[in-house]
Write a protein that binds this DNA or RNA. Structure first.
Lengths: 229, 229
DNA sequence: TTAGAGTTTTATCAAACAGTCAAGATTTCG
DNA sequence: CGAAATCTTGACTGTTTGATAAAACTCTAA
């Protein structure tokens, strides 16, 4: 009891982190992201995380005393990053380009941070037992705020009048799909186009979908001319 | 060794299933769906499934000898149901109404079979280790076939020309989102509208999105009149 | 350079876990 | 009915898992 033992004790003392501490926590969180994003909280094991991080299990538990602590550290840093694109949605900007670039930013996140996307999806599938409160206190107000922005654009006739919250859902789901269901996407698209090509195709498609939908504007929609296949 | 023991042995004999067998297998699969859809394969435990099914663990293992067997039985019955709406997409029908009703059917499945949706999502998040082959042999050909149908409609000018596979992705993702991310949806929409109301709102929104997109058709899109918020 | 803080390891534990076994209880059907 | 087939259970096995204790080692700053 010489004042040594466990990091938690120093939490109140706002003590600086050691070089080794910073390195190892980073290694652990990265390994944990790999495991939790694939197997969920229960399915992931400390052993595998430790192995992936290249350290012994007790050593890992020196930095995070419980499995839950690792998971929570991961979630905490996640939500902030995750909502950034929505925060940037600017009421002042031009509505359509503004939405376009929001969609693109979300798609870029799915491409660049697929593990984070899967971790989030996993937590949702479980009913968000560990971040429901955070969703209430952080996500909801932000969405409410941006929904008002969208409503303003609709009232000004700058975008079609639709339910703004469902609009946000559809942007989230279509973009995150490329991270969360990546295997399926790859199976269906085949190996022809690489990851970059797939990304560009998706971006182009989503732009058309969200701007123009599927109904052709040119010909009378009810009596299009017949053409052989 | 009196010819008793374990169901697996009789697999080749095409023997009929007992009343009790049918009942219990149903109970087990239902309980397993509950567990696997939330916690994934590794996260779910036989103990919990047995408890949920209201029987002892050894009894459960009398019907399914290994955890994997339950999971595979579940997956096998899932994929068939899951792809039915897409199979019904009819090349002969009117393109826009045909797509509309496909979207609606998918949305209904998300509403009526959320656990199945989550099970599927969970398997995808893990990289589909247990059904990747099935996706190749069953899902891909079906999607290829329907992509051709969509291409035909596009060439005939009946729907806008977009990447047909990405179009299918967007229908899957937007509809399944309401099952897989249900917590989030509820947090954001609040308790005002019940499940039925949410469903109708979603259906209405998706119809607008997929048919018309967000760009207003009336005013010149580049120079909309100014109106105060 | 050395005391003490910080880090890592070995050994260990109890609980949870997947799966087995044989005996006992129940159902089915001639 | 009664015997064979089917079903259920308790007791158990070996392993994995989350977590702890304490000893041994390493780094760092005065």
């Amino acid at each position: 009891m010489k004042g040594t033992q466990q990091l938690k004790a120093r939490a109140t003392e706002t003590q600086r982190k050691t070089r080794i501490q910073i390195e190892n926590e980073e290694k652990i969180l990265d390994a944990a992201l790999e495991e939790f994003s694939v197997h969920g909280f229960r399915g992931a094991t400390i052993d595998r995380i430790a192995a992936h991080a290249g350290m012994s299990k007790p050593n890992l538990l020196y930095y995070f005393r419980r499995k839950q602590d690792i998971y929570e550290a991961l979630i905490a840093r996640l939500l902030d990053t995750w909502l950034e694109p929505l925060r940037e949605l600017d009421a002042i900007g031009d509505p359509l380009p503004e939405l376009q670039s929001y969609i693109r930013r979300k798609l870029e996140m799915a491409r660049d941070f697929p593990r984070e996307s899967r971790l989030f999806a996993n937590e949702m599938l479980q009913g968000a037992p560990r971040i429901k409160r955070l969703l209430q206190s952080e996500l909801k107000p932000l969405v409410d705020e941006k929904a008002e922005v969208l409503k303003g654009w609709m009232k000004a006739g700058k975008i079609n009048a639709v339910d703004p919250r469902h609009l946000i859902f559809s942007i989230w789901s279509t973009t995150q799909h490329y991270a969360d269901f990546d295997v399926q996407v790859q199976v269906i698209l085949g190996p022809d186009r690489g990851a970059d090509g797939r990304f560009e195709d998706a971006a182009r498609y989503l732009e058309t979908l969200f701007l123009d939908g599927l109904r052709p504007k040119t010909s009378g929609a009810d009596t299009p001319r017949i053409r052989t296949l």
